[in-house]
Design a protein around this nucleic acid. Structure first.
Length: 496
RNA sequence: GGCCCCAUCGUCUAGUGGACUAGGACUCAGCCCUUUCAAGGCUGCGACAGGGGUUCGAAUCCCCUUGGGGCUACCA
């Protein structure tokens, strides 16, 4: 098995899914997972993308057994470093009459294209004299495959069955470019043979050229690997192949790039699970499964041939599921970098902060993405002065007046100051009985307190939050809130 | 245009001639639980693209139509 991306841009989800299936099948069969870099197009090569690619694969936990950075029995694994090999095999084909030098110029090709015509095989049967003349001229040439003019070629696709095409539709593709580098077709066939690749997993956009590859394997006298053409991944809208840019659907922005999901607070395990269900199904009644379970059941023959539009809302849901499954300490550590970055804190200090550890179980079932943590816990790391009440009406409890809300805050202040021991359970008991005594709903009582303490209408469970914050800090915020609401009430009376 | 691939709820999917009044998941709606928000539980909405065959019997097999997608480079 090999994953052979071309480093021309950031790794996208389609590529990751291909790599995932490759990896799964390699692990399932006990085979090798090889990373090979197809950089034979010098014009589009982008060195940054190689780094991005490896980061993405490692993030998902897809470690390769052979590759450019770790070597292996078939090194090198970067095609631009294998140039002599391809030239050697291209020449072998020429010597055996299975390929030929073509001296057609760019302009001549352009002329054909302008008339909507394919290459006309004009140099396929050059006389020795004609060839000598071109050589004497010093004309640059490419090596083209002398494809059969008649008959058909059948490709066996592991998920679609047999695909047969007329050989005449294969018009002598270029194998070796005039710059001496191979095209994809030559490189892939030579490398897959030399690297002893048994299964080729790649996007279905390669189906049309698969017959050519079969023909090349035959020309060399090699046996072809099993072809597995993975369905394309569509835009979230379901219209068209997923673009290489961010797209907006229903007002939400979706990125095709893996890096954006790493930064976006997604968990590798969730992405793994999610991507594994795109075109493959673990079990009709189960969506969540482990890597080990997937490895055990995965088979390329079970992959669906249908193109898929990624259901991103399901990815989010799944990420939430994985977050809830996490060990608290692991989640704390995972969330720390995001919170630290948002709040301008030092990550390591934050990791050791007992408040974050105490807060983590409270937010665990409230976030779907790691990036959502900050909004839920920032108040705990901010001084009282930073908790402001730009909209004092938020301090007013449901079905309460401003005056009643102030009373509630005063009552809270008294309870916070006196409750012993200062713990969530005792605080809750005290607030419950006080609410009853004041004849208001607990929820109405708590809303002003919640906003006073956290500055927001939505927060983790209040009593635990107050306990984590501490008595003194909580008291300060209650005082500030009472002040803010009192000021508001005064102006509100003046101009109703 | 030519060649090729594909076709089950909005989306991801199960289904390989009878167990299908088509199952699961996400989303959405309602209810329950509840200190906010979540999470959780329950209920609901929702699909075999259309038409012909084959067969005692088709979501499942064949053909056509339609629709979607891909390829059509000295890019991968």
């Amino acid at each position: 098995m090999r994953f052979a991306p071309s480093p021309t841009g950031y790794l996208h989800l389609g590529g990751l899914r291909t790599a995932l299936f490759d990896w799964l099948y390699a692990r399932h069969t006990g085979g090798q997972f090889i990373l090979r870099i197809e950089d034979t197009d010098q014009k589009r090569y982008n060195p940054e993308s190689l780094q991005d690619l490896m980061e993405g694969l490692r993030w998902l936990g897809l470690h390769w057994d052979e590759g450019p950075d770790i070597g292996g029995p078939h090194a090198p694994y970067i095609q631009s470093q294998r140039q002599p090999i391809y030239q050697q095999y291209a020449n072998w084909l020429v010597e055996h009459g299975k390929a030929y030098r073509c001296y057609t110029t760019e302009e001549e090709l352009e002329e054909l294209r302008a008339r909507g015509l394919p290459y006309d095989r004009r140099h396929r049967n050059l006389t020795p004299e004609q060839r000598a003349a071109f050589e004497a001229e010093g004309r640059p040439f490419v090596i083209r495959f002398a494809a059969p003019l008649t008959g058909t070629t059948t490709v066996h696709d592991a998920i679609r069955g047999e695909i047969t095409v007329e050989n005449a539709t294969i018009v002598d593709p270029v194998l070796l470019k005039s710059d001496g580098l191979p095209t994809y077709h030559l490189a892939v066939v030579v490398d897959d043979h030399l690297m002893e690749i048994t299964h080729v997993l790649r996007g279905e956009e390669w189906i049309p050229s698969a017959p050519l590859h079969v023909l090349l394997f035959e020309a060399f006298g090699w046996s072809a690997p099993v072809f597995v053409h993975l369905p394309v991944i569509l835009d979230p809208s379901g219209k068209g192949k997923m673009s290489k840019r961010k797209t907006v659907v229903d007002g939400r922005e979706f990125s095709p790039f893996v890096r954006d999901y790493i930064r976006g607070g997604y968990l590798p395990d969730a992405m793994f699970n999610f991507l594994a269900t795109m075109g493959w199904s673990f079990d009709p009644e189960r969506e969540i499964f482990t890597r080990e379970e997937a490895i055990e059941r995965f088979d390329v023959a079970d992959i669906s041939p249908k193109a898929t539009a990624l259901p991103f809302s399901k990815l989010e849901w799944m990420n939430g599921v994985y977050i809830r499954q996490m060990d608290v300490v692991a989640l704390k550590d995972a969330v720390a970098p995001f919170v630290a970055a948002d709040l301008g804190l030092d990550v390591e200090t934050l990791r050791r902060d007992p408040r974050l550890l105490a807060l983590t179980p409270l937010i665990q079932e409230r976030i779907k993405l790691l990036t959502e943590a900050t909004a839920l816990v920032d108040w705990a790391f901010l001084p009282a002065e930073k908790i402001t009440y730009p909209d004092p009406t938020q301090l007013i409890g449901k079905k309460l007046t401003a005056a009643q809300s102030i009373e509630a805050l005063e009552a809270a202040r008294e309870l916070i100051a006196t409750v012993e021991p200062f713990e969530a359970a005792t605080l809750e008991a005290a607030f419950r009985s006080r609410a009853e005594a004041m004849d208001i709903k607990l929820g109405s009582f708590l809303t002003p307190v919640r906003v006073a303490v956290t500055g927001k209408t939505v927060s983790p469970p209040l009593f635990e939050s107050i306990h984590i914050l501490g008595r003194e800090e909580t008291l300060k915020r209650l005082v500030n809130a009472i002040q803010a609401l009192t000021a508001y009430a005064a102006t509100a009376v003046e101009r109703p």
